[in-house]
């Protein structure tokens, strides 16, 4: 085991994938200069492990700022023998390529009767919580959950980032990886050997018996912190991180809620038609009789992300808002007025 950051783990997975298979290439804006730290070994070009030096310009390609053209070309390349990893930098930039994602990437295997294979990974960073304003702060994964044909991962830990990305690169289905910048510097012991975490398998971040919190992306560490706080008051909270949103590990969620009888779902995306809404509906449809309290969603409200730090920090689930939701489902008195975002 080696201590790795979230970004370092992504870099390690990309290096392993590039070493393992010559058909893997990395294209995207600024990948040659390792601007985001996932295509190199260190801070400078001369540091050991620089991808451009290691793999050459044929397999590490800077692209123009042309998201629609990049995503479509990656799809075409995937259909004809390559296994591209596309670095789209910010998740908000995915909208520029919406036609290619929805009409080509997601549909080609199906509408061509299985002739097309689509082994391509689209990585992007959700740059929320860092005062970058409304154009850089999006958490758009629920929109893409509504597009059949795509698979979606949202790792919340360095180990998951490494293991899920390896599985994503090896998959013949198109995969979108949503990586929260708030997690970039998270560190933990990660296996420096190759390993693969299968898609569609949730992780139990913390075991408990009274309440299930299903948390996504940067809401996972907040949920774990809230669970630890509630443990002091005798409430046993189980935290489930789906890790993969499509396909969703329905069984793990249902199993946990059947055990605890209470569900809080926390995610940084907007409330309407979010992953939390889908998970809540799943539980209500399948195991309504197991529920001892109403399901509570803790999400971002349906509004733009404001720039000012004093406004933005209220927008996403926090330890405090998740803890407040847990208190409600176990009938504990609120410690303070519940924030608007709950």
């Amino acid at each position: 085991m080696t201590v790795m950051s979230y970004l370092g783990a992504i870099g390690a997975a990309q290096r392993e994938a590039m070493d393992a298979d010559e058909r893997v290439i990395i294209i995207g804006e600024d990948v040659e200069a390792n601007v985001y730290g996932t295509t190199g070994g260190g801070k400078s070009r001369s540091d050991k492990g620089d991808f451009l030096q290691r793999y050459g310009k044929n397999r590490i390609r800077n692209t123009p700022i042309s998201e629609e053209g990049i995503v479509g070309a990656a799809a075409g390349a995937a259909m004809t023998g390559l296994r591209p990893i596309v670095d789209l930098s910010y998740s908000s930039f995915l909208y520029m390529a919406m036609d290619q994602f929805v009409n080509q990437v997601a549909k080609n295997r199906y509408m061509f009767g299985g002739q097309a294979s689509m082994p391509v990974v689209f990585r992007s960073a959700m740059f929320y919580g860092l005062n970058t304003g409304a154009h850089h702060s999006d958490r758009p994964y629920p929109m893409f959950m509504n597009v059949p044909g795509l698979k979606i991962i949202a790792p919340a830990t360095p180990s998951d980032a490494k293991g899920l990305l390896r599985s994503a690169v090896d998959s013949d289905d198109p995969i979108l990886s949503f990586e929260a910048c708030l997690l970039w510097s998270a560190k933990e012991d990660v296996d420096e050997n190759e390993f693969w975490i299968p898609l569609g398998v949730a992780r139990t971040a913390r075991e408990g018996t009274d309440v299930t919190v299903v948390a996504i992306s940067s809401s996972v560490p907040e949920a774990v912190a809230a669970a630890e706080e509630l443990a002091q008051e005798g409430v046993s909270v189980e935290v489930i991180d789906p890790r993969t949103l499509v396909p969703l590990d329905r069984d793990a969620i249902l199993r946990s809620v059947a055990k605890t009888g209470r569900l809080v779902v926390a995610e940084p995306a907007h409330r309407t038609c979010g992953a939390a809404a889908e998970i809540s509906a799943l539980v209500a449809e399948e195991i309504f009789d197991s529920l001892k309290a109403p399901i509570i969603r803790v999400t971002a409200p349906d509004m733009q992300i404001p720039f000012s730090p004093s406004l933005e920090k209220q927008m996403y689930p926090t330890k405090a808002t998740i803890a407040a939701a847990i208190r409600r489902v176990v009938d504990l008195p609120a410690l303070q007025p519940v924030a608007a975002a709950v």
Partner: peptide, 17 residues
Amino acid sequence: GSSIPIANGAALSSKVL
């Protein structure tokens, strides 16, 4: 227009491979 980049990607494959 949507299939234009698909062919472009096939050309990229040919170039890389």
